[in-house]
């Protein structure tokens, strides 16, 4: 396999800034992500992580800066176009289509690839029958990958929490992205569920040759699966590096625990090294 540094750049963000009124939610954010990397974006609450996601996916228009996806500038594109050129996401608080079946949730994500037009849809003629069957079978295959195929007729909101998360990831993948953005995929999960989720993320990355950027609060998850990560605090990037580097980074510990606690942690560590 080609070493990571030689692979083509998928996402390049430079100087990304967002103001909400007088509040600077994100300032001068930058990141470069290469193909098939699994990157984490961490930071305390309110650091601006989700705002970065919302700008990448076109929900917010950046106040300044550029977002380049495989060389295409995204800054003024409509959200649905951004999805269609290959970026899909999940949401922090799950956003399924709650009153539709599990199957239809996934089939909706296939819509841009459906291949038949309005006229075929209204008459059910022409290419409709064969393309609709093809689309349905593809969606069912996806549900199979996520072990949801027996749930296809279930109404989405009736699924247990863990399965809703899985369905949301399945739906995002059905949009056939090259870059997948996961917003706190482990939120509200118990340790066992978190472990399966970590396996799942690795698995989909390999199976669909994806590049993944994920926001996460649970250190166990990011440290366990991400190759490297960016740490944000108060809208700025304060550190960047591999899990080991980040764990030892003084500014990160300060951001998470506060200055006093960080100093305490430092002292404890020194004591331990002395004792050894």
């Amino acid at each position: 396999m080609t070493p990571p540094a030689d692979r083509p750049v998928v996402l390049e963000i430079q100087g990304l800034t967002k103001f909400f009124g007088g509040l600077r939610a994100v300032s001068d954010f930058g990141v470069t992500i290469r193909e098939r990397e699994l990157v984490g974006l961490i930071g305390p609450n309110g650091a601006g992580k989700t705002t970065v996601f919302n700008m990448i996916t076109g929900i917010y228009v950046p106040s300044a800066g550029s977002i380049k996806f495989q060389g295409t500038e995204l800054a003024e594109m409509a959200p649905h176009t951004i999805t269609q050129i290959g970026i899909a996401r999940t949401f922090q608080n799950i956003r399924l289509f709650p009153n539709l079946t599990v199957l239809d949730n996934v089939r909706i994500a296939y819509h841009p690839h459906a291949g038949y037009g309005m006229l075929d849809a209204l008459t059910h003629g022409g290419k409709f029958t064969s393309l609709e069957r093809e689309l349905t079978e593809k969606a069912q295959d996806f549900l199979g990958v996520f072990r949801l195929q027996d749930r296809q007729g279930e109404i989405a909101r009736n699924l247990p929490y863990g399965e809703q998360r899985r369905l949301e990831i399945a739906r995002a993948l059905a949009a056939e992205p090259k870059l997948l953005l996961l917003d706190e995929p482990a939120a509200g999960m118990n340790p066992a569920e978190v472990a399966t989720l970590m396996d799942l993320i690795h698995f989909i990355r390999d199976r669909f040759s994806l590049t993944i950027l994920l926001i996460e609060h649970q250190m166990r998850v990011v440290m366990g699966i991400c190759e490297w990560m960016s740490v944000m605090d108060f809208g700025e990037v304060i550190a960047r590096g591999t899990p080991q580097e980040i764990q030892a980074n003084q500014r990160v510990i300060e951001a998470y625990l506060g200055r006093g606690a960080a100093a305490l942690a430092q002292k404890l560590r020194e004591k331990r090294t002395h004792a050894a």
């Binding site: 959200p79 649905h80 999805t83 996401r89 289509f97 709650p98 539709l100 994500a109 949009a175």
Partner: peptide, 15 residues
Amino acid sequence: VSVREDEIAAKAMGI
């Protein structure tokens, strides 16, 4: 129908 269910999710799904 996806628009009725959740506009933001629909946009994020390329609708």
